[in-house]
Simulated scan of single mutants.
Amino acid sequence: MRLTRPRLALTGAVTVLALAGCGSGSDGGSGVPATATGSLEHLAAEVKCEPNMQTDADEIRQALCDVDDGKFVLATFATDRGQREWLNGAKDYGGYYLVGRKWVAVGEERTVTALQGTLGGTMEEGSEHMNPGGSHNKGGHDGGDHHG
Rank of each mutant, 00 (worst) to 15 (best):
N131A: 10
L19P: 12
K138I: 01
L19T: 14
L98G: 02
G107F: 07
S127Q: 13
L98W: 04
T4Y: 05
R7N: 02
P132W: 13
D92M: 02
D66Y: 07
R61D: 12
H141E: 09
G12N: 09
W86L: 01
E41K: 00
N52W: 11
T111V: 09
G29E: 15
A20W: 13
A114Y: 12
K48D: 15
E128G: 00
E108Q: 06
S24H: 12
G12V: 10
K138A: 02
R84I: 15
P51K: 02
A13L: 05
P132G: 09
Y93V: 02
A18Y: 13
T11K: 02
L74V: 07
R101F: 15
T79R: 05
T11M: 07
T111C: 06
Y93K: 03
V47S: 01
N137T: 11
K48S: 14
D69L: 13
L119T: 06
R5F: 12
F72K: 02
S39G: 04
T79D: 15
G95A: 02
A9Y: 13
M130W: 12
S26Q: 11
V32Q: 04
K71W: 14
V14R: 05
L98M: 03
A63I: 12
E59K: 07
G28M: 10
T111F: 07
H146P: 04
A105M: 02
H42W: 08
